[in-house]
């Protein structure tokens, strides 16, 4: 059973065609990085899988079920996919606990179970003592951990990460990507990880997918890519 399948998916915004017949398969439990310069369509792929955008054509499958094609549309709130946003998207009017527990509250879980699972996930991402803090009292790295915990608390089969570390400083980035990889291997979720940082992609992924102008131009495991560096795009950073 595949984790995520995009089958000849097209998407245009007005006149601009971002994806034209895009194919991608992510295996169950695999962490795939989408690598490419800004505007190459990698974030659009992520938002299509999330259900935040609707494809113009093609089929999208998650966990063996079709979530979008010509006759099917499953809205994002019904897809049970976790997502971590570039801007963290931590809600400023809720404390850390309420942010992370929100998906459980939506699902209507009893209070005791909510508290238990939220505390467990906060421990996992290393925010054990900060449950009552307001987001404004957190550092960027801590906010990122809140966003990660919120994405994982429902134990989703798929987690989408949209340049999750790009707003952090270099040292913190290295630590965070190690933590994300560790948690992914412990819990075994399927992940699509969008980034424009090659080192990050090489360090964290099972497989790298290099995109340009809405097309896959190269892909391979980190080892394959390291031995064929010409596969990588020019680093524009």
């Amino acid at each position: 059973m595949s984790g995520v399948v995009l089958d000849y998916v097209s998407k245009a915004f007005g006149e601009v065609v971002v994806l034209g017949g895009f194919d991608l398969t992510v295996e169950n439990g695999e962490l795939v990085s989408l690598l490419g310069a800004s505007g190459c369509g990698k974030t659009t792929v992520l938002r299509l899988v999330a259900g935040l955008e609707r494809p113009d054509a093609g089929r999208i499958g998650v966990g063996g079920k079709t979530v979008a094609d010509a006759g099917t549309w499953v809205p994002p709130e019904k897809r049970r996919i976790g997502m971590v946003f570039q801007s963290y998207a931590v809600w400023p009017h809720m404390n850390v606990f309420d942010n992370v527990a929100y998906p459980l509250r939506v699902a209507g879980l009893p209070k005791a179970e909510r508290a238990e699972r939220t505390s467990a996930i906060l421990e996992l991402v290393g925010l054990g003592g900060l449950a009552k803090r307001r987001p404004t009292q957190l550092s960027g790295g801590q906010q990122q951990r809140v966003a990660l915990a919120r994405g994982l608390v429902m134990e989703p089969d798929v987690l989408l990460l949209d340049e999750p570390l790009s707003n952090l400083d270099a040292k913190l980035r290295v630590r965070m990507r190690k933590d994300i990889r560790r948690i992914q291997q412990e819990t075994g979720f399927t992940a699509i990880y969008v980034t424009h940082d090659q080192d990050e992609a090489l360090a964290i992924s099972d497989r790298l997918v290099v995109m340009d102008a809405g097309q896959i131009v190269a892909q391979g495991t980190p080892d394959e890519v390291r031995s064929h560096p010409f596969l990588l795009p020019d680093d524009d950073e």
């Binding site: 999330a50 809205p75 994002p76 709130e77 049970r80 996919i81 976790g82 997502m83 929100y102 919120r150």
Partner: peptide, 15 residues
């Protein structure tokens, strides 16, 4: 409002 804030809530299942 950063559009990611309501998007994050939808991804959490809210509607």
């Amino acid at each position: 409002v950063d559009p990611a804030l309501p998007d994050a809530a939808r991804m959490s299942g809210a509607r």
